[in-house]
């Protein structure tokens, strides 16, 4: 990781430590059922004539959502740097992912109101090889991100956890 100073490297190292723990304790069986089936149907099948439909029908399993959110919160607090976590799940039948649950304002990928995101290459990599991955910072990047695989009971990677920390800027209060 050339061109990364020691301070940035320290942030990455901390994120990687958290991501390794997350990979071990997040339960893919629960994560993949957070978004309600009907809600995921509308996320996966957007209607160009009625673009708010998936928002209209968005719903989550209260218990699974809350349990994962609390776990993300605990993971964040293990960190020695401020960071936030989110969990991304694949959208069935599409080369896209959507957020199942998130915390706080530090995010690399999430744009306010976003329902679908073309799976970024680094996430594809995590889905494919099941390894924790540091996202190489781009020039001028103000965020550091490490991704972790989330496995189900069969060992399949069914979600990706994102841990993102600021490098030099406070988060916007309004996201």
């Amino acid at each position: 990781m050339t061109g990364v100073n020691a301070e940035t490297e320290a942030v990455f190292a901390e994120l990687a430590r958290i991501a390794e723990i997350a990979a071990g304790i997040l339960d893919g069986e629960e994560v993949k059922r957070i978004i309600a089936e009907q809600a995921m149907h509308y996320v996966a099948n957007p209607d160009p004539e009625h673009r708010y439909l998936s928002g209209d029908y968005f719903d989550a399993d209260h218990e699974l959502f809350l349990r994962t959110k609390k776990l993300l919160t605990r993971l964040e607090r293990l960190g020695k740097v401020p960071l936030n976590g989110s969990v991304w799940v694949p959208i069935p039948g599409r080369e896209e992912v959507t957020v199942a649950v998130q915390n706080g304002a530090y995010h690399r990928y999430y744009q306010f109101g976003q329902e679908r995101l073309a799976t970024p290459p680094e996430m594809k990599q995590v889905f494919a090889n099941g390894q924790v991955l540091r996202v190489a910072p781009a020039e001028g990047d103000r965020l550091a991100t490490v991704l972790a695989p989330v496995r189900d009971s069969l060992g399949d990677v069914v979600a990706v956890a994102e841990f993102t920390a600021p490098l030099d800027a406070p988060p916007p209060a309004w996201s």
Binding site: D61, L66, V99, A100, G113
Partner: peptide, 18 residues
């Protein structure tokens, strides 16, 4: 709003009675 995925219930314009 739950559709933004920070919380599991709607605090704004709640749609679900549950």
């Amino acid at each position: 709003k739950k559709r933004y995925r920070w919380f599991e219930w709607d605090g704004d314009e709640p749609k679900y009675a549950r």
